[in-house]
Amino acid sequence: MSDNITNITTEDLQTMSGKEGLILQGCGGPLQEWLNGVNGLLTESGILLDGSRFERASVFQHDGLTNLLFPFEGVKLDMGKLAMWRLQTHDQFGGTWLSDYVPNRLEGFTQAYSPQKPKMDLAGMDGNIYAILGNASMLLKEAGMREQIDEMFKRCEASGSYDEALSIISEYVDTELSAPPIEPKKTHKKKGKSAHER
């Protein structure tokens, strides 16, 4: 395995919510040649811009196929041209976007685990921001979230007002000012296979 090619699992893909990349399916033979070949093809097609190239790719197995993920982070692309290239070469490479592959083939992205925020009522506190910070710190420590205490203090010290500091504290502990939790969207697995996979 080349240093530029990383082995990942389909479970790793499911944690990549918010990221994007190009997935090519059914990549047989030496994977480094695929990386070099794709860089060459996309450069010639005017898709990779200003000397940009994919320095790394990730390989994973699914449904008996070896697939490569080319992440878009740090790569300058003409997305319109890439979208056209993907459609034109789909029968050859089975190209799809990471954001399409995971919901359609892997039952969606998983939500990263985050510990339950401790609850703290601001009502009745005396308006002393340091007393409120002390209270929030004690609750975070009890909840096993010690690493967030320093971060909360630094952000509050850099804040411009009492209200801003309260908003910051409300990101770490659940107060009357905290935003309601976002319900994760449910994605449905589509049945059937593409022409490339049949």
Rank of each mutant, 00 (worst) to 15 (best):
Q116H: 06
H90I: 14
K117W: 09
K189L: 15
M1W: 01
M145N: 13
Q111G: 07
G64S: 11
K190N: 10
G134N: 13
H62M: 04
T187Q: 15
G28V: 03
I129H: 13
E164D: 09
L139D: 07
M152G: 02
F153K: 09
I132Y: 07
A136F: 11
G64T: 11
K81Q: 12
I132H: 05
D100A: 04
E107S: 07
L24G: 00
T43V: 03
H188T: 11
H90W: 09
Y162K: 15
N4F: 04
D163F: 05
K185R: 15
G80F: 03
D50T: 10
A165P: 10
L22M: 12
V102L: 06
R86G: 03
A136Y: 00
Q88M: 10
E73G: 13
L49S: 06
V102Q: 00
E55N: 13
E157Q: 12
G21H: 04
N135Y: 14
Q14R: 15
E183S: 06
L24A: 01
Q116T: 11
G94S: 04
D12S: 05
E44T: 14
L35W: 05
E183G: 08
A112V: 14
H90Y: 15
R146V: 11
F60K: 10
S17H: 09
A143G: 04
Y101G: 14
T66G: 05
Q25R: 15
F153P: 05
S114N: 10
I129Q: 11
S137N: 09
